[in-house]
Design a protein around this nucleic acid. Structure first.
Ligand SMILES: [Mn+2]
Ligand SMILES: [Mn+2]
Ligand SMILES: [Zn+2]
Ligand SMILES: [Zn+2]
Lengths: 153, 153
DNA sequence: TCAAATGATGATACTCCATATCACTAGAAG
DNA sequence: CTTCTAGTGATATGGAGTATCATCATTTGA
């Protein structure tokens, strides 16, 4: 099977092959990699899942008084490493985090990003240029980590 | 005249209409807006012009011992406001700065970015997604500030 | 030409985000 | 249970960027 393109407009990710969206269990993804399903992690994941836009680490921390600051940052880093969360660097220097529900592109692709997460990236690209941005369009060609590994064999 | 697209691959910006690259005098751009052409500003601009990639503020500061830290940040901010420098937020949280030599898209477009500046933006977009990025393509549609203002009339 | 006015500079202090430390807690395994 | 260790949270620390302010430089125009 060939690699497939993912088109990203300024609102939502659009699949090119119409395959069904297949959400990922974030906590399960952690456990599968040998991490523990702790209460703070569940709280952070739950908060990210109910959000409909990217969140700053500080916003997460403030909304979860029972979870320590350090744990918020640690958990975000962990979720980034596992790949179930996206980091969006904003032009003002702040960073937003949001869910990444991904299924491989080689084995039946659909990659879906919550509104307000990856779609901020093109906005950042616009802001990095002179003049007034009118429109933008980004295409990413990707594989999942597993299939990329297969490809290397 | 219609708006025109600017295609950005992962190396260089490609103009779609073949118009000639028209560099901008950065210091002149400052003076035209009522700022002064001081020695520290000339030094920073000269350093940015001879660089062939994006630079961090700290790198600029360290390479210019005669220029104070605060002035480096102030000058960068000023160059950003004037629009002759691009800010590229990197995935690791650092920021790179590089020249933006721009000519309007409506009145005869060519926008050229130094290698290593805007072309980092698609890389950041890649890094913000799960899995392995294979390729990317970004198109920006823009106008200059002046023509955008005309459009609003 | 010279003096007043204002813009710009640089040392320093400070703020804010993120990380490192470390004693302690709680989940996993037997 | 008991043991073992990953994980937690309070705190200290680090680093990037900003605010302050006394001093300096450039402009203006008398
Ligand atoms: Mn908290
Ligand atoms: Mn310096
Ligand atoms: Zn796959
Ligand atoms: Zn124009």
């Amino acid at each position: 099977m060939n690699k497939q393109d993912i088109s990203v407009n300024n609102r939502y990710v659009v699949s090119l092959n119409g395959l069904v969206y297949q959400p990922t269990n974030l906590i399960a993804a952690l456990v599968e990699r040998g991490h523990r399903a702790t209460a703070p992690r569940k709280a952070i994941v739950a908060f990210l899942e109910q959000a409909n836009e990217g969140l700053t680490a500080e916003a997460i921390n403030e909304k979860l008084p029972s979870v320590g600051r350090a744990t918020v940052y640690r958990t975000i880093k962990l979720l980034l490493e596992v790949g179930v969360v996206c980091k969006i660097p904003m032009m003002d220097g702040s960073h937003l985090y949001g869910l990444t529900r991904s299924v491989c592109l080689l084995c039946g692709a659909m990659v879906e990003f919550k509104a307000g997460t990856l779609n901020r990236s093109p906005r950042a690209a616009d802001a990095g240029t002179p003049g007034q941005p009118v429109d933008h369009h980004i295409e990413l060609t990707m594989t999942c980590d597993y299939c990329r590994a297969d490809e290397d064999k």
